[in-house]
Design a protein around this nucleic acid. Sequence first.
DNA 1: CCTCATATG
DNA 2: CATAAGAGG
Lengths: 254, 254
Amino acid sequence: MKIITYNVNGLRSALGKGLLDWVAEAQPDVLCLQEIKAGREPLDVSGFEALGYHAYLHPAQKPGYSGVATFSKLLPKNVVVGCGRECYDTEGRVLRLDFEDFSVLNTYMPSGTSGDERQAFKVEWLHFFRQYVRELQAMLPGLLIGGDFNCCQQDIDLHNPKANQNSPGFTPEERRWFADFLADGYVDAFRHHPGAVPGHYSWWTFRAGARARNVGWRLDHWLVNAGLQPRISSAGHLPDVVHSDHCPVFVELI
Amino acid sequence: MKIITYNVNGLRSALGKGLLDWVAEAQPDVLCLQEIKAGREPLDVSGFEALGYHAYLHPAQKPGYSGVATFSKLLPKNVVVGCGRECYDTEGRVLRLDFEDFSVLNTYMPSGTSGDERQAFKVEWLHFFRQYVRELQAMLPGLLIGGDFNCCQQDIDLHNPKANQNSPGFTPEERRWFADFLADGYVDAFRHHPGAVPGHYSWWTFRAGARARNVGWRLDHWLVNAGLQPRISSAGHLPDVVHSDHCPVFVELI
DNA sequence: CCTCATATG
DNA sequence: CATAAGAGG
């Protein structure tokens, strides 16, 4: 069972760059996309359906902004769109699919790079999300949380930790949040396997050839609740897949 | 003496498509551009200066909108930016260069295609402009008015006159205005020479391959005051020059 | 350095 | 069907 998260930086743009050809080849069982940037018209998901996927969308209210989508080969037994808090749900940030013995929570966490106000909004979200997941976890047999977290925890998670001590995504507050979140009973699938390998990132700025020089950040994650940990057979990045400034990040379950 | 008017639909875009190479080859003595669409930063005119032109700009206040520019090999003895009426001058629509024995008035007339309000604004402009030119004409030895008039007069001036009886640019009101303007003592240089030849247009919509099928309108003109008429040696369009949805329109004076 | 929406043509 | 600004990243 292969489950992939991918911030596509505009689904229409990614489709134009051959996203569906890659999906057909990669054959994920569940595919979680972020930043679909749906417009006023509903997105065309017929290409995914033709590949055998059920499609679930949670666009933002604002056209061209944010939004998540999950595509699944298996029919989920339940789908939950949004988290029930309006200030987040208008931005299309969470979408949950419940299967028989686990759930996949697709999430696009706010970015703080556009200023203090959005960084504050992001930190509020992080605390909300942690509490929200604590409540979910009590109700669900197993939980995989995948998406663009817009933050990371350790020096090894970004190319230049020294220069980014106070950058949004790597502030002490966010790093502590990440550790606390894991302490609630989650493993970071990539650090579980392959482990503490440096130079594995999931996002690179478009500027200055950062991706070619692998000057990146590991912002996209699979956090898997401890009970499911024995079922993780592999996890990794697909940095050669290029439809976006992010790359796909996968986890495989037995 | 070759004088050219050209709606470039964004000067930066046109420069990117090789406008300067064409200027270097065409060697106009005076070049009137419309829809320069200047941004917040001043436009870079060094390429024109390197070709020996004096540069005069009248951008709109709103970034990326409207605006005219005139480039001249001869140093004008006087330059007048705008027409003195604020509602037009904020939109960068007129720029006059006075030479020894004639003046070149570069003008970008409003478009009415975006709705009734702008069509009404355009008609007000047309009446203002006619009166404005009457006053100028009394003060100037000779006058060439060139630019994107966003209107035309006769059935021969557009590919589909029947279907456009009430389209902005060919309303009865605008056609009458054009006839009245000429009656004030101007010749339409293109109708003076080559004359009543059909299928010569200066603008084609970007849609549906209109230019390839020559489904166009003659919206760009040189109107020359009657006293200068004997000096017109030729006039014409350059439809093979493609940096814009318009083509350059020239007049040559002896 | 990208994508997207919007204004304007 | 284009250009360009602007928001957001």
